[in-house]
Design a protein around this nucleic acid. Structure first.
Length: 504
RNA sequence: GGUCGGGUGGCCGAGCGGCUAGGCAGUGGUCUGCAAAACCUCGUACGGCGGUUCGAUUCCGCUCCCGACCUCCA
């Protein structure tokens, strides 16, 4: 650990040095998807961001427990219907079938983007008992009240106690999202249960079920279901404890979801849950919000196939992942066809350079090893950028400076005498670790070791030998014919100083 | 309307009180039978108007525009 890991804590709005509760261990909770429809591309970006954070924490040597939930109950639409139930009704499925269908879809997409599985992936409907207990505890602590079988969180009562603790109490309601409690209290909102609540800013932690509701459980307050927000408080507490290290999620969840989560945690356990909050920013397309209603949207599958009016072609999952990595997780990211093309080329150049590095041999005969030192410094700088709030765009910038040097060594513009073999080995190890283990990229063009790729290697050797003979004989017609025909077949031939190489 | 975050060269996108981001595209070269690739070179950008400062793209104020949340959405 050359430099300390710093991260931007959205709770304090400051960049802070990360110190886990228990040395060597990290507990991280990330709000997962509500599984009522196919995964949104924005979801992919959010979870890819946390994947990289997860990977980097592990690279730093931490043992990480990464909890990412699946919400399958309690999340209501604006008309007050449960999202799961609505989809179940429309598609004539059991709510659990809806959950399974879209959870599977979600997992498939996570795998395609090479996101690691979390350590634990709890589902809200599987933690009803924990949620009921939490509601009870909140009531017992004086922050919840029951009306007609529903239970609401009493924001005013909560805030009064927090205020009494002093102005700097970190868990005052609104502290995370920058909301002013007075404004929230005076806001009038058209919610279904408005009449039952003492105040508009109160929110349901347990909701009475209507007869037609499909997902409902018995509770001390009658048959009902837990409120959205509660599942995250209950499950993070269960698996990570009343206080844990990192809580993440999309920017749009800051309010009310995360604000309410903190209130529930404190309201139940007198502790606020996470010490560091991380929020990822939104994905735009062509400078505007992705929105189904005006057609300014694209699905992950469309992105792969290119089947969209917004795209000129399809892009591979790793090109897209690389594209995401070129933007900091906390910045809005603008998806455009042009930007994707640029990212794809950059990704391919990076992969090519890593393959070149694998074949590179150096002598280290020169005394000073000047180039070797630059390579080592560049690599250290890249990791230092990762330590600075997971700054992947800057880390990649350092990597591309290394890429140029690798190519120059291979092309003869830089002398291989200037790099020691040990330095080169170290570079190979570190670069692999950063690109594949931490950033989670994969070399899509790298051949496997199966019989077909071996056979292709053999065929290519034969063809390139024939072409080389033709070139020696100055038979340009034949050599160009081979090159053009291979190009047609999707194989690029590149003539280098030490013979030709090829790539798919 | 309220709260918050942005507006950077042709495109995307980092960053910062004075010193090269990086990728892609473009310029001119080197290499090559040609081409591609690779390498070298160049480009002097920070929405507008003021202010603070020896000096601001970077700090402050105002203004315009965009986005997020407040209301379903990562």
């Amino acid at each position: 650990m050359a430099t300390p890991l710093k991260l931007n804590n959205t709770l304090s709005r400051k960049k802070e040095i990360f110190e886990p509760l228990e040395a060597g261990f990290v507990g991280m909770y990330v709000c997962g998807p509500t599984v009522y429809n196919p995964v949104h591309l924005g979801n992919c970006r959010t979870f890819t961001s946390f994947d990289l954070i997860y990977r980097y924490l592990m690279y730093k040597g931490y043992r990480v427990r990464y909890v990412r939930n699946i919400t399958d109950v309690g999340h209501l639409t604006d008309s007050g219907e449960d999202k799961m139930a609505k989809e179940a009704r429309i598609s004539k499925l059991e709510p659990m079938e809806v959950a399974a269908k879209y959870a599977n879809d979600f997992h498939d997409m996570m795998r395609i983007f090479n996101n690691l599985n979390p350590s634990i992936e709890p589902q809200a409907s599987g933690h009803i008992i924990e949620q009921i207990e939490m509601v009870q505890q909140i009531i017992d602590n004086g922050y919840g009240y029951e009306v007609n079988g529903s239970v609401y969180f009493d924001v005013a009562a909560y805030e009064k106690d927090m205020e009494a603790k002093g102005d700097n109490a970190p868990h005052r309601y609104g502290a995370l999202s920058g909301r002013k409690i007075d404004e929230l209290l005076s806001e009038t909102r058209e919610l279904n249960s408005q009449a039952e609540k003492k105040s508009p800013s109160d929110f349901a932690i347990w909701m009475k079920a209507k007869p037609e509701d499909l997902q409902k459980w018995k509770s001390p307050w009658g048959v009902g279901f837990p409120g959205w927000h509660l599942e995250c408080s209950a499950m993070s507490t269960k698996y990570l404890g009343e206080t844990f290290d990192i809580h993440g999620g999309g920017n749009d969840l800051k309010f009310p979801h995360h604000e309410n989560e903190i209130a529930q945690n404190v309201g139940c356990c007198h502790r606020g849950g996470a010490r560091y909050w991380l929020h990822t920013n939104m994905l735009l397309m062509n400078g505007r919000k992705m929105s189904k209603s005006d057609g300014n949207t694209v699905t992950p599958d469309q992105l792969f196939t290119g089947d969209s009016p917004h795209l000129t072609k399809g892009y591979s999952p790793m090109a897209i992942r690389f594209f995401m990595l070129q933007t900091h997780y906390s910045s809005t990211m603008d998806l455009t066809d042009e930007a994707l093309q640029a990212a794809e080329k950059g990704y391919l150049r990076l992969m090519e350079a890593i393959r070149t590095l694998g074949k590179l041999e150096v002598s280290g005969k020169a005394q000073n090893e000047t180039v070797g030192k630059e390579l080592a410094e560049g690599m250290a700088a890249a990791f230092a950028e990762m330590d600075d709030d997971f700054n992947t765009p800057k880390a990649l910038a350092r990597v591309f400076e290394i890429v140029t040097k690798i190519n120059a060594l291979a092309g003869g513009q830089l002398s291989t005498d200037e790099v020691n073999p040990a330095t080169l080995d170290r570079l190979k190890t570190d670069l692999h670790a950063l690109i594949f283990d931490v950033l989670g990229l994969q070399d899509e063009a790298a051949g496997g070791s199966n019989a077909h790729t071996k056979a292709l290697d053999g065929v290519m050797d034969v063809l390139l030998d024939i072409r080389q003979q033709a070139r020696t004989d100055k038979n340009w017609g034949l050599s160009d014919q081979i090159r053009d025909a291979l190009s047609e077949a999707g194989i690029k031939v590149k003539d280098g100083k030490e013979g030709a190489t090829w790539s798919v």
